[in-house]
Computed example of a mutant assay.
Amino acid sequence: MAVLTPQRSAPGSGAPQRESRRLGFSQRLGRWDVKLSPYLYISPFFILFAVTGLFPLAYTAFVSVHEWSLLGGQGEFVGLQNFADVLAHPTFWKSLGNTLSIFVFSSVPQVIMAITIAALLDQNLRSATFWRMGVLIPYVVAPVAVSIIFGRLFADQYGLINSLLNTIGLDSIAWHGDRIASHIAIASMVNYRWMGYNALIFLAAMQAVPRELYEAAVIDGAGRVRQFFSITVPQIRATIIFVVITSTIGGLQIFDEVRLFDPIGLGGPDRNWMTTVVFLYDTAWGNQHSLGRASAVAWLLFLLIVLIGLANFLITRRISSAGPTKKSKRKSTTTTTTSRGDA
C-alpha cells in the first residue's frame, strides 16, 4: 500500500509569492514602516538643507554664468566671463589679502585662547556655573553693539586704546588709516564674540574625557601641563578639528564687523580692510549693480573656503593626532620580537 507524502515545493517556486500575497495590509504596512521610518526621521534636515543650502548654491552658479543686473534681471549667457572680470579686478585681490590677514589674526589666537579658557574652566573652581555662563555673554551680544563699543575703543583721536598708549608715552595708532592696525582691531572684535562660544565647545569635550586617565597620570608624576598635552589634546582631537574648520569658514566669511567698523565707507578710503564678502556686497548693491559678477565672487570664495578647510583639516588632524609615530612603532615591534625570541 503506497503512502502519500506531502510534496515540498522546489526552491524558486511560487510558494513565497503566495505567502506574501496572504499577508494582510497591516503586515505589509509594518514592513514598509520598518524600512522607511529611519529615512523619514532624518528627512526634515536634508529637505531643509536642500532648500536653504543646495538650491541657493546651484542657483548662484547659474547666475554667475549670465549677465545679470540688479534692475534688468537675467541677460545673455556669458560663460566664465564674470569670473575673468572678477579675477582681473585689483580690488578683488586686495580684498582677498585683507580676508586672509584678518582670518589669521582672528582664528589662530581665537582657538588658542578658547582652549586655554576651557582648560581653566575644567578645573575645580568655585561658582563654576557662573564663570562658564560668563564666557558666553559676548556671543549673545548683537554684532552692532560690539562694533559700536570697539569703534569707540579703537577710535583714532579719542579712543581708549590710544589714550592708554599716550599715557605710557607711546604714540597713537591710526586704527582706521593703517592696514595692519585695522586688521588687528577687526580681529579683536571677532575674537571677543566667538572666543567664549568655542571655549564652551572645548569644555564640553574636556568634560567627556575619562577622569581615570588624569588619576593615572598623577600617579605617574605628570604635571598639569604634561596632562594637558598628553591626555586632553589627544582626547579632544575631533573637537579641535571641528572648531578649526568652523572658525575657518566664519573667518573667511566675515562681514558684520568689517562693515560696521566704518559704516560710512566700504573698507576705508583705500579699501584697507575690505574683505571678499564686503567686495561681493559692493559688486551686487554698490556701484556696479552686477549680480552675475557678485555670484562669481561668491563661488570663488566658496572654492577658497573648501580648499583652506581641507588644508586645516589635514594639518589639525596630524598635529592633534594621538597615534604613535613610526619610530615608536618600530621600537615597539622590535621589543616585541626580542621578547618573543627570548621566550
Rank of each mutant, 00 (worst) to 15 (best):
A322T: 06
F302C: 14
L300S: 03
A311T: 08
V297R: 02
A322F: 07
S295D: 15
W299T: 05
L304Y: 02
A311E: 00
V306C: 13
L310M: 13
A322I: 09
I305Y: 11
T325F: 06
G323Y: 12
R318G: 13
G323K: 15
A294C: 08
A296R: 04
F313E: 00
S321F: 01
I315V: 14
L300Y: 09
A296G: 13
G309L: 04
R317M: 02
T316L: 03
L304F: 03
V297C: 05
F313A: 04
R317C: 01
A294G: 09
V297K: 03
T325A: 07
G309F: 07
A298S: 15
I305Q: 14
S320G: 06
L314A: 05
N312Q: 12
L304I: 04
I319D: 00
S295T: 13
T325C: 06
S295L: 12
A298I: 05
S320C: 11
A298Q: 01
S321N: 09
V297D: 00
N312M: 15
A296Q: 04
S321Y: 02
I319P: 00
I315D: 06
L303P: 12
A322C: 04
L310Y: 11
L307W: 00
T325S: 15
A322H: 11
S321H: 01
L304W: 00
A322R: 09
N312H: 14
I315H: 03
S295Y: 10
V306K: 08
V297I: 11
N312S: 14
L301D: 06
T325L: 07
L307V: 12
I315Y: 09
I319L: 09
G323N: 15
P324H: 14
S320Q: 08
I315S: 07
I305P: 13
S321V: 01
A294Q: 05
A294P: 06
A294L: 07
L304T: 05
S321L: 00
L300N: 10
W299A: 03
S320F: 12
T316D: 00
